[in-house]
Design a protein around this nucleic acid. Structure first.
Length: 310
DNA sequence: AATTCGGGGGC
DNA sequence: GCCCCAGAATT
């Protein structure tokens, strides 16, 4: 009997990745590579489809308001990726540069993404190192210390000239170099496991204020803060200039979200209010507009806890 | 060289 | 609940 797990695996392996068009499109390659940073293929695909539908070209992305870009990124995490994507689209001036060195100048292009776009979409002979490459090379060569940095040093020598794109994208269905792999007998030892940092608890109280017509009061989170630039329920401690509370707040419950470096816990309250916010970062949002707004996953959890579909 | 920045899936 | 992770920017 086949397990459902096996079937799921089989389906995943057969799946067509929508950014692997022929010929390869630089814009699409770029978007997919950025979305795939720290994010699984299965999660990315629907986001990619929606994003490409809304921003089919570099120019469309450059012309779009940042808020629209963040809205399409809502739930994907690491929102600076979206802000940098937008900034880079505007800086590119109509077309992406064709070399890794030049791409590296654009915001959001680190060593990996620059090499990926240059080799996959423009055919440049440059190697790349992602987490997988670093791990494989760490095992094959028994690298200790900073495997990623050493892998970048080794990679150019492994690159078949003229086929960098093909080489960089290849994935191992089976390992054919076991016999020369120096980490074979202790694969878990290479690369050295990282020590995990503590995860301090970050806690605040937020309030879902509803106007008589059902609109919800949302605030834009400040830059350089967690979820920077995303919309959220206002914390009860912040001032709400122009907004008047109508009646008491009632507690609706607690929502939590585990992030890489923090555990976040938000106590959600609800109440009624009215008035005209005297700030661009504070606005009433109709219940039907919530789904097309740049909200973090935690913000959506908070809204649902307050009984608001989003 | 460390720290920060989200989130979901496997078990 | 605890594990993992397909990077970049900042300090």
């Amino acid at each position: 009997m086949f397990s459902t797990k096996l079937l799921r695996w089989f389906r995943r392996e057969k799946r067509v990745l929508p950014w692997r068009t022929e010929p390869r499109d630089p814009y699409r390659t770029w978007i997919s590579e950025v979305m795939l940073q720290q994010t699984r293929v299965d999660v990315v695909i629907p986001y990619y489809q929606r994003f490409l539908k809304r921003f089919p070209t570099l120019d469309k992305l450059a012309e779009a308001p940042l808020d629209d870009v963040l809205a399409l990124w809502s739930g994907l995490g690491y929102y600076s990726r979206a802000r940098n994507l937008h900034k880079a689209a505007q800086a590119a001036g109509g077309a992406l540069p064709r070399t890794a060195a030049e791409l590296r100048e654009l915001p959001g292009f680190g060593p990996y993404t620059a090499a990926a776009v240059a080799s996959l979409a423009f055919g440049e002979d440059v190697p790349l190192v992602d987490g997988n490459v670093a791990r494989v090379l760490a095992r094959v060569f028994a690298l200790d210390g900073d495997a990623r940095a050493q892998a970048w040093r080794i990679a150019p020598g492994l690159l078949p000239r003229g086929r960098a794109g093909q080489f960089n994208e290849a994935h191992c269905t089976s390992c054919t170099i076991r016999t020369v792999c120096r980490g074979r007998d202790a694969p878990e030892q290479f690369p050295e496991p990282k020590k995990r940092p503590a995860r301090p608890l970050l806690e605040w109280e937020a309030v879902a204020l509803r106007r008589r017509d059902g609109a919800i009061l949302l605030v834009r989170r400040p830059p350089h803060d967690l979820f920077a630039g995303m919309w959220d329920l206002p914390a009860t401690e912040i001032k709400l200039p122009g907004v008047r509370l109508r009646g008491p707040l009632t507690e609706k419950g607690v929502v939590e979200q585990t992030l890489t470096h923090r555990q976040v816990r938000v106590t959600v309250k609800a109440g009624r209010a009215s008035g005209t916010p005297r700030s661009d970062d504070l606005r009433w949002v109709g219940p039907n507009a919530l789904h097309q707004l740049g909200l973090s996953s935690l913000a959506r959890k908070s809204l649902r806890k307050a009984g608001i579909a989003c």
